[in-house]
Structures are given as C-alpha cells and as structure tokens.
Design a protein around this nucleic acid. Sequence first.
DNA 1: AACAGTTTTAAACAAGTGTTTAAATCAATC
DNA 2: GATTGATTTAAACACTTGTTTAAAACTGTT
Lengths: 204, 204
Amino acid sequence: MKNDLTTEQKIKAAAREVFIAKGFAACSTREIAKVSGMNVALVNYYFRSKTELFKLVFQDAMEEFVNSMVEVFSSDKSLEDKIRLLIEQEYEFLSRHPELPGFIVNELHREEGYEVDGSYFEKLLNTGIVEECQRACAAGKMREIDLISLTLLIMSNCDFPFMSKNLMKGIHKLSNDAYENQLNTHKKIVTDMLVSYLFPQKSI
Amino acid sequence: MKNDLTTEQKIKAAAREVFIAKGFAACSTREIAKVSGMNVALVNYYFRSKTELFKLVFQDAMEEFVNSMVEVFSSDKSLEDKIRLLIEQEYEFLSRHPELPGFIVNELHREEGYEVDGSYFEKLLNTGIVEECQRACAAGKMREIDLISLTLLIMSNCDFPFMSKNLMKGIHKLSNDAYENQLNTHKKIVTDMLVSYLFPQKSI
DNA sequence: AACAGTTTTAAACAAGTGTTTAAATCAATC
DNA sequence: GATTGATTTAAACACTTGTTTAAAACTGTT
C-alpha cells in the first residue's frame, strides 16, 4: 500500500480525498482521521486546525488546476493548435480529476470565503498567452475577444461537463459508462465549435 | 415586510435562502429558524426534519431551473430563434437566480445523494423539442448533434459563467459590477458561437 | 540503561448538532 | 367562559463537532 508515506502525508492525502468528495462543511476531522488510519488528535498536531488543513488542500487543488493549463501555453505551437491541445489536455486532466472544478468552484462560492490567490494565475499570464492573443487579434488571425470571455468559453465547455455529471446522468438517464463515452464525443464537438468560432475561415 | 406569509412559508423561504447560499451541510436548523424569525422546534413541527425540508427546497429549485427552459421550447419560433431566445432567457433567469445552478449541481454531487427526479425533464421532453431537432438535422438545417451534447453545450455556456463568478473574479481581479457587465457581453458571444455552430452557413 | 525529544494515544472539553418533549399560548366553537 | 384543537415556546435529549490535554509509546543519543 502507501505505507511509505509519513503520518503527515497520510492525513493530508485523506483530507484531500474527503474534502474534495464532500466539501469542507460536510466532513469532520474524525472522518479524515479515520480515512487516513490515524488518530484525531494528529490532525491538529500536524495541521493546527481543520481550517488550516483545508487551506493547504485547497491550494494544492488550485495549483494542479491551473498548472494543467500552463504547460500548453508555454509550448511553441500555433495559437489554434494551442487551443486544440488545451482542450484535449483539459479533458484528459479532468478525466483523472473529475471532482476538481466542482470542488474549487463550490468552495469559492461558500460565503466569499477563500479568496483566490492571484499568484496561481500570474504563472498563466506569464506564459505570454495574453500578448499572443492580442497579436493574433490585431493580425486578423483570431476573432476579437477579450481574455475574460476567452477564459470563460474554454472553462465553461471543459469544466462544466465534468461538474454536471450527476445532473446529466439524471436528465438523460445515463449510466456511468455511457456518460464517460459522451464526454469523449463532447470533447470533439467543443474543440470544433471553439476553434471554428475563434479562428473563422475567411469568406472568399 | 412579508408578514402575510404563514409560519410554514416563512420557514421554507428562509430554508431556501440558507440552503442555496451555504448548502445542506454547512447550515443548521437553528440558523434557518433564526433567519425565518421562528423557533427551532417549528422547523420540525412543519417539516419533520432538516432533510425533509431540504428535499422540498431542492425540488422547488429544480422545478424553477427546468421551467425556465420549457416555455421557450413551447413557443412556435424557428429552431434557431428558439436557441437564441433560450440563451437570452437563461441569462435573464440566472441573473435573478445566480446561485441556482451551482446549488443544484453541487448538491447532486454530494454522495450520489439526491437523485434527479426524471419527471422534471419529461415536461421538457414533452415540448417536442427532441423531434424538432431530429427533423432539423435530417433536413440539413441543423448540424447533426445528439441531444445530450446539445444540452451540455447550452448549459455549459449559460450556467458555468454564473457558477464560476468568484473564480473568475479572482482570476481576473474583477469587481462585482465588472463581472455583471462581462456576463452581458459573454451572452452575445455565446449566442453567436452556438448559433453559428449549430446552424452553419452553407458554403457556396 | 538513562535521558530528551518527538510522535501517538485515549480521554476529556465546551460548544453545536438535529430532534423531541411537555408545557404555554392562541383561536375557534360550544 | 369553558373546552377543544392547533400553534408556539423554552428546555432538554443524546450525539457529534473541533480542539486540547496529559499521559503513553517511540526514537535516537549519550
């Protein structure tokens, strides 16, 4: 098993599992302790408080979430290929961490609570993607669009399909497997739609 | 104020407010009682339990959520206009109930818990929209797309921008007002993108 | 083997949880 | 005005919560 982990690591791993699955409010320190196989007191011994432990878990989640995008923008492909690659990679990443966007979005929602540490995103902005988009727009290679809407377009079409799994399964009466398949075909649709919207073919 | 409401109604209204704002787990019956201005025991007197009360609130939310779409599909406009109108109306509805999709998606997520009562969606299917789409596809008026992906496309691009408000505000360091404005311009983008994807211009 | 420091434990703490009880208040009927 | 029923109340219930305590067990060093 994972007996090579330290107690501290075991607790943090368990906390991540439980926090992401049920959210901050819906789980207890005792549950985290039980999942980690450790004593309740150890949670506070290593992490001071449930809240402090949550902050760590949330930060990690946020970093993973953002990092999955940074690589792509750092590559030296064309802008169109970057978008294609980004969607591809996001769907791959989210297949492995399907609960992550829901976790982040939801915990950010609960009473303005955990503010977003902007530093996560500076990394993303430092890839030069913003300037690249501006240049592409100016050169007429890409549709004029502000960065916020671009972010929204991509995240909406990548994250929401994973977040809304149970809702979609309910609406269309789908099994787990059926929905996984659906996600795969949806990825292609989203790629087509976004690329053809952002990089319209010139009419002759 | 709203003193014309019965005690039962006051409690249910308060429960809705608190449940939607913080989620089932993060709020207590005492908080609901306090917000409603009533005694704790009355919550159980009228609704048997916190869980039972939640089910009522969730059902109502679900119904509102779905009803906002049914009207549009029942109208006698062209399919393209229905899509346009649907997006328009969804953004308008979500401006008034911005926390609704997040509430639904998130509470459905928590441990497979509340299954989706399919009956909500039968109403939607009974509008004949499915057949209309199939006919439009067959006639080449609309891109071939399955109903699930169509649902996903529309909901992703309508709901996610509202659900991710705090995340987006954090990423792009926006004020509340700035984000409200952003939502307005995003609505147009989404409409353009979806319509031109679903109803592509024939190449000459 | 004795010590010091860290790690782990069971137990306790006060505060908060959902829910119930039994008495008090209210409203309407006779 | 007494009686019945529904409504409201404060108090209590047993249990869970996050956190702390103080003792135990373990570690490595002398």
